[in-house]
Nucleic acid binder design. Structure first.
Lengths: 140, 140
DNA sequence: CGGTATCCTTGGAGATACTG
DNA sequence: CAGTATCTCCAAGGATACCG
């Protein structure tokens, strides 16, 4: 049944890209990835999502230990932003000392899944890019 | 043959994330996505890749028309960066007036493929995020 | 047409100190 | 423990003008 017509693939891909690049009338008027990158294309958001998704549940300082190089301020800012976007759930436990736990919402989990391919691509082709870069710099 | 064991899925995912987050000893010492985002997580790179991939081949000013809001300078900077990373191929034709065409390299094309899922996610969940944001802002 | 070169502004992000 | 509040600084990026 699943007849694969090789030539239909690029056409379907084209249609998908078309929709992704289509400018939304509502809100910012930007297309989907631009809107996405405006909020999640910063230095930390995606990395934090990967880490929370990996651990399922993480406390603030545990997360800070794992995300190499992040400052306390930026972790707070990033987490608030992710919480605001409905991607991360923040649970506060009224204990002493206070305990706060972060986990992915279902929406956040679905995003993590969508990011997996990109993450794997990044890992697989990291050295290829570094190589291309060295080659380019040498020529010029 | 393809027996799907539901419980093995999260485990495989975990292993994948582990590798994605693993800190590379060579180069910057950052993990794969951090390294990736440092170069491609800016405002324009991914959008430009989508546009070039969609059109197969594009001239400078044609690209500028399509990427809403980009300045001439940023388009140049972005294209140079993508060329340096080996993702985009720049072809100069010695004509008058001069003609320059941009297209994806095989590496760039494979990246586009990896970005498709993310792009589709962005499109599908754009309104959900906007909604979460409004809800969050109302409460606070 | 397809860019450089230069100036200038803004806000992203680190460092530090304080708090419920 | 898990933050907030300031201060500060640097560089990403817009505007503008010029060039092969």
């Amino acid at each position: 049944m699943a007849v694969t017509i090789a030539d239909s693939q690029p056409i379907r891909t084209k249609k998908k890209i078309e929709k992704i690049l289509e400018e939304k009338k509502s809100g910012t008027g930007l297309c989907a990835i631009q809107d996405f990158l405006d909020h999640l294309g910063d230095r930390w958001s995606m990395v934090v999502i990967f880490h929370i998704g990996y651990a399922n549940k993480l406390r603030f300082n545990e997360l800070k230990k794992r995300v190499t190089g992040i400052s306390q301020r930026m972790l707070t800012v990033t987490l608030r932003s992710l919480e605001r976007d409905g991607l991360v759930i923040r649970s506060i436990f009224a204990e002493i000392p206070p305990r706060v736990e972060y986990e992915l919402s279902p929406l956040g989990a679905s995003l993590l899944e969508a990011m997996m391919r990109l993450g794997e691509w990044a890992r697989e082709h990291q050295s290829e890019i570094e190589q291309a870069r060295r080659k380019f710099d040498k020529k010029k």
